[in-house]
Each structure stands twice: as C-alpha cells, then as structure tokens.
Design a protein around this nucleic acid. Sequence first.
DNA 1: GTGGTCTAGACCACA
DNA 2: GTGGTCTAGACCACC
Lengths: 132, 132, 132, 132
Amino acid sequence: MQYSIRPATGVPIYQQLRDQIAAGIARGKLRPNERLPSVRDLSQTMVVNPNTIARAYTELEREGLLYTRPGLGVFVAEAPAPASKKVRRERLQKSLDALLVEAVQLGCSSDELMELVAERAKQFEWAESTAG
Amino acid sequence: MQYSIRPATGVPIYQQLRDQIAAGIARGKLRPNERLPSVRDLSQTMVVNPNTIARAYTELEREGLLYTRPGLGVFVAEAPAPASKKVRRERLQKSLDALLVEAVQLGCSSDELMELVAERAKQFEWAESTAG
Amino acid sequence: MQYSIRPATGVPIYQQLRDQIAAGIARGKLRPNERLPSVRDLSQTMVVNPNTIARAYTELEREGLLYTRPGLGVFVAEAPAPASKKVRRERLQKSLDALLVEAVQLGCSSDELMELVAERAKQFEWAESTAG
Amino acid sequence: MQYSIRPATGVPIYQQLRDQIAAGIARGKLRPNERLPSVRDLSQTMVVNPNTIARAYTELEREGLLYTRPGLGVFVAEAPAPASKKVRRERLQKSLDALLVEAVQLGCSSDELMELVAERAKQFEWAESTAG
DNA sequence: GTGGTCTAGACCACA
DNA sequence: GTGGTCTAGACCACC
C-alpha cells in the first residue's frame, strides 16, 4: 500500500498516516493478520522520523485495529465485535454533522449528497450482517 | 443567536465559535447583511478573551462569509457563487471518506448508514436548486 | 499531590505517573476540574523529560480522565457515565485474576485476601449508586 | 497441562507461558517433583521458538518454582516457605490498588467488587492454613 | 531484525 | 504562559 503525506495541511503527519491505514483496513486493502512495513523501513520510504511512524501504529493499536507481536512486527487485527445500533449512531453523529454542514455550505442539494454517499459507499467493504 | 462553548473538548474556542456562526449562516439563522454582536459585547456575554472572538470573525471574513464595515461592525456576507458540481464532490470527499471509514469500523451496514444520513439530512436547511 | 518514580522497576515512567494520577482521581485526592501542574513545571520537579510527562497526560486524556484547555493547561474530567454490570465484570477480570494468582502464590488464604480487599477498599471513593 | 498463547495481546510469549505454569503450580494442577515437557517437545507442540520456552523455564527456575536435573529435565519445586503476613500484604498492595482504581473508575460499587472477588476466588485453589 | 521508552531541543498554535 | 508535533539519536526487551 502507498501512503501520501501532505505536510502543509496542518494535519499532523501521524494522523494522516493513521487515517490512511484505517481507511485501508476499512476498504479491505489491508487484510487481517497482514504484516505492516516495519517502523524503520516505512520511516525511510516516507522520509519521516521513525517516532512519527511508531506513533501512528501505537494509536491504531490502542484503537484495536492493529496488534504488535514483540520482536516480529505489527499486524492488522481481526474485525472487532460490532457495537450496538445506539452506540453506532452516537459515534457517527459527529462525522455526519461535519459532512452535512460542509455540504450545506457548498450549496450541495440533499439529493446530490445522498447520491454521492451511495456512490462512494460501494467502494467500501461492509460487514455482511449487523448486530442490534 | 446563542453560542455554546464546550471547554473540555480540546477544540479551540475560536473554532467552535467559527463553526457555529458558519452553520448559522448555512442554515439561514443568520441572514445576509445582518449585523453580528461586537467583539467586546460577545466576549463579555460568553466570558471569553476578546482576542478569541476576534479570531473567529477574522477567519470567517477570510473565508468570505463575513465582511467588516469599519466603525459599524461585522456583517453576514451575501451567499457566494455556488461551486461547480466537480468542486463540491472533491471538497466533500475527505469528510465523506472519514464517515465511511468510521461506519465500516463500527460494523454499521451500508443501508443503515444511508438511512442515518437521510434522517439527519432532513434537519438541515438545503439550497433549493444547485448549479452545475 | 506528590508523585514518586522508581526507575529500576522496568515499569515505564509515564505509566507510573499515569497510574498515580489515575489513583489520585479514584481516591478523590484530585477533584473534577482541578488543574494539574504544567508539563514544564512537573518535568522540572520530577527531573524527567517534558515529553514523558506529556505522554502520561495524553494517555489519561484519551481515557477520559483528564481534558486539555488549549493555552490554559490540563484539568481533571468529570466522572464518566457508568458502564453496564457485564462490561464492568469483563474489564475487571484481568486485574482480578492477576491479584488472585499472586495471592495464591504467596500462600495467602482466601479469607485473608477478602479481609485485605475490604480494608483497603474503605480508603477509596466509591460511586453512591451503580447502574445495571 | 494445556497452554494457550494469544499472540495479539502484546504480552511476551515467554511470559504468558511463565504465568500459566506458575498458576498451574499455585492451583495444584502441577504437583511438586512432577516433570515438565522438554523444551524441544513443547516448542513443537506450541509452534513457538525453543528459546522462548527456555526463557520461561529459566525465569521460573530463578523464582524457585522449578528446578533442573541436568540430563533428566525440568521439574516442579517443593512449595516454598510461606511469606510472613506483613510481606504478603506489601506484595499484594500494588495489584490490589490497581484493581481498586479500575473498579472505582468503572463506577463499580464496593459491594459489587467484594462479591466479584469472592465469586472468582472460589475457583482458585487456596492453601489450607496460613503461617503468620 | 522487531517495536518501546526516554532524552534533548526545535517550532507552532492557543489564550 | 500553556500543550502538541516533529526530529535526532540512545538504550532496552523480544524473537
């Protein structure tokens, strides 16, 4: 997988990397138990300090998306047990509102937004069933 | 209009204010050419440093959402020329992907997400027509 | 509050500090919305690198025990909404088993352990009611 | 005796094995002077590097829980002289406080914790008497 | 070889 | 003044 960092955005490098890895897992580009590049390798490839790479990995491990096998490397975790419907709604609220505010400010119609969401959603890997 | 600041979130105060004003304009609660409270007044009402209020106003002016008439105060700008469909899509891509990644990781199904978006979208004020 | 670090234990400094602050909050020595010493001050007092202090604070913020007000400092958060009984049991399992294994290995009797727990528990601040 | 290793936990493999053997001894599943599987056999059974098995055995020998008869294998040691009550209390303090801090932060009541401890304690094998 | 911890010191955003 | 990010480089534990 390829990672692209834009230093001028103000978004921290470790965050950009974290987001791209998380997206890779969500979209199925990174499979469970797949090994990620080592901190040292990736830091050389991306021309970024090893600590910064390590921080992205650490964040993702805390979130349960990666796990570390000491001495062996960092790996993609199995998909976690699904949260309840209520929890899902609460957690998504913030990102959803951010999207809606942006859409409104851009003069995007409701229909256009729904279409855009549906379109993009096809490219993601969805769980087959959903717990209540 | 009323503004609510949550100090414990880590989101800078000036940005919380900026977002609430921007949302107010987008949702029509603040009308073009309406005058906003003065920096001094608002800083007293909200018990916040005047510099912080000023910064929120400055950001919004830079974005073209407000304009200043020296000696008279700060006002809501006219609605800007709508962006092209292509530009809208590009701008929304980032927030949309963030939402989708979160949804997938929460084990939220595609249908459930669409339903959630549609539901919440009803509560926003949309432009009636959309330029291409 | 006073913090004591034992460098020879193998337990990371940032962890020791984290644990002591967490204990301070649990035992009521640190009150909600109380301000903690600044990273720079504490790093001088404890003769530890500022990054190490910052890491302890960051961990606690992620856990929801502290919050940061940008430019002002770090503060103790309000007590969070209680978890369900089932969740509580699961989360405590690990620490509880560690305690029991240790007790057994030391040749401590079951009664003696219960007595020890009861004794020490009196010194902690307990929630008045418990959600199911 | 069966050993189960969870690679995704971040806990070193040698330590997981060490803990399970120690617990086995404490709970009487492994009897004094009983022979343990050879490093080579166990490393094959568990699909783990022999060095890792050896390290677990070495640690336990250092702690006095195992002893080696060169050319014959590794054996469970006799039960050690019980620690004094004071020593037991001191040693348990740390784990106990960790448990209490967690319980408080989870909103677990004092009674609920005592009940939980008592319940779980029944499943452990306790020494019949305790020296002072 | 792997990641984890700690130090030192620079730079930036926020109030 | 506050904390947050990033770099540089050292040392350790694990496999």
